[in-house]
Design a protein around this nucleic acid. Structure first.
Lengths: 140, 140
DNA sequence: ATACGTGCAAAATGTTTGCATAGCC
DNA sequence: GGCTATGCAAACATTTTGCACGTAT
């Protein structure tokens, strides 16, 4: 289940945020992109939707999204990248360390098992995707 | 199984790297610290072992460690932090999003299950810890 | 109408690099 | 001795902020 722009926009509206053109542009790009983007790439693509966006707004939008569990900042090979999170329930992000593709994976069984193991170590999981690094089929 | 300084130093020696005092200082701090450190904190603590270390060396040492799977850079709340990885086999890092504590967890069963699920999505896992975010016992 | 969001440019951070020197092996 | 690694400071990159203006609700 990939993130959809409508779902994210709906969640923001619920949260009392305004849906502005620049925000919409950023969200649409995030949802249309299966791989990790860095903030500058994100800006470039967002400009195709709304040319006046500035980098500061990209950062500010990412803050809002991240605080609401709607996106995630990931550091890959030392650089900051971003993905949208489609789902607030426990799920996994398979991240290709070569090309940056991110695949959302759901696996309820291991999810429960992991949750239990983590709990035995005193941890209550966040509703934040579990990051798994690997190499995707295409990159091998 | 936590990372030990000797193990890391041994691995570096094998890899043809020189064991210098600044590197040793950085490694000892990393292994002595159960929570995520940012590079500046790491530098400060390393200075207690070897006062002449500079920040650039901390970064360079982290690069070497990370390239060899001996440490891991993690972005927590937007800031870069670092942990040592004690083990090259598949394992988990339980990361407390409040205090930054990292607990290494091993769970061979879910490990295998995850590996299989990932493989079904075309992914071959890296020997890189799986990141799981949550809140530790103390912070609740 | 009235906040909230924005763009711009400047400031604050964070990271990398060049180069002469130090110190492992 | 030779070559890797270091420290320092400068270059570079990234992220945040202040402020006057625009615009969603």
């Amino acid at each position: 289940m990939q993130a959809t722009a409508e779902a994210i926009i709906h969640a923001l509206t619920e949260g009392g945020y305004r849906i502005t053109r620049p925000r919409r542009a950023v969200i649409e790009v995030l949802c249309a992109t299966p791989e990790l983007l860095d903030p500058i790439e994100l800006l470039d693509r967002a400009k195709a939707h709304y040319p006046r966006v500035g980098l500061a707004t990209v950062y500010r939008t990412l803050d809002v999204l991240e605080q609401n569990g709607l996106a995630r900042r990931i550091s890959l090979n030392g650089k900051t990248r971003v993905v949208a999170c489609g789902n607030l329930s426990l799920h996994y992000h398979l991240i290709c360390v070569r090309c940056g593709v991110v695949v959302e994976m759901h696996d309820a069984d291991t999810g429960r098992a992991l949750e239990r193991s983590a709990f035995e170590h005193g941890f209550a999981l966040e509703h934040s995707p579990v990051e798994i690094r690997g190499v995707c089929a295409k990159c091998r």
